[in-house]
């Protein structure tokens, strides 16, 4: 298998956490994994990008030029990556904050930010996106993802962990 995922959104939307979580969910059963964040002189409110590659074979570069899936959290980021949305690519857009792009990719719209608001915290939109992505492409099982959420948030208060799990399940069923 080879799954190259690009995740992008506004700084603060949890793009990096979403990528790290996806990568760590795969550690037990996918042989080769890379996670690469955009790092650098980023400013608050700027764009945040990361790439996750899951592969049966060795990964040469953690940065890909073509993607099997693209997850987009806001409109500015969407415009930055619209040219990457090729025919065989699955695109998930946070339709609360993005227009549906006119591309040849298969586009799944997820009302992530609104659903997150309904759960009481706009910040969990990222895990709603993760749930929706895994529903469309089950590269890891929901159980593995939930285990990773608990591990990643270990030490935080229980209600926060449960809220994130709930967000993930909401996305899975959306």
């Amino acid at each position: 298998m080879l799954e190259r995922i690009l995740i992008t959104g506004a700084g603060g939307q949890g793009v990096i956490l979403l990528g790290r979580l996806l990568a760590s969910s795969a550690v037990e059963h996918i042989p080769h994994i890379t996670f690469f964040p955009s790092y650098g002189a980023e400013v608050r409110g700027g764009t945040s990008v990361c790439q996750v590659i899951l592969s049966a074979k060795e990964i040469a570069s953690p940065l890909s030029e073509t993607f099997d899936s693209i997850l987009v959290m806001n409109q500015i980021s969407l415009e930055n990556v619209i040219r990457q949305m090729k025919k065989n690519c699955l695109v998930l857009v946070n339709s609360s904050l993005c227009k549906i792009p006119p591309v040849s990719s298969k586009v799944v719209s997820v009302d992530a930010t609104r659903l997150a608001d309904n759960l009481g915290d706009t910040r969990v939109a990222n895990f709603i996106m993760l749930g929706a992505y895994l529903a469309a492409k089950p590269v890891v099982t929901p159980l593995q993802a939930e285990k990773s959420i608990r591990e990643l948030l270990a030490g935080k208060n229980m209600s926060l962990i449960e809220l994130n799990i709930k967000a993930f399940r909401t996305g899975l069923e959306s």
Binding site: R20, V27, H32, Y39
Partner: peptide, 10 residues
């Protein structure tokens, strides 16, 4: 280098 420093792998 920065790429190997920043990237995550198992």
């Amino acid at each position: 280098d920065g790429r190997l420093g920043q990237m995550m792998e198992p």
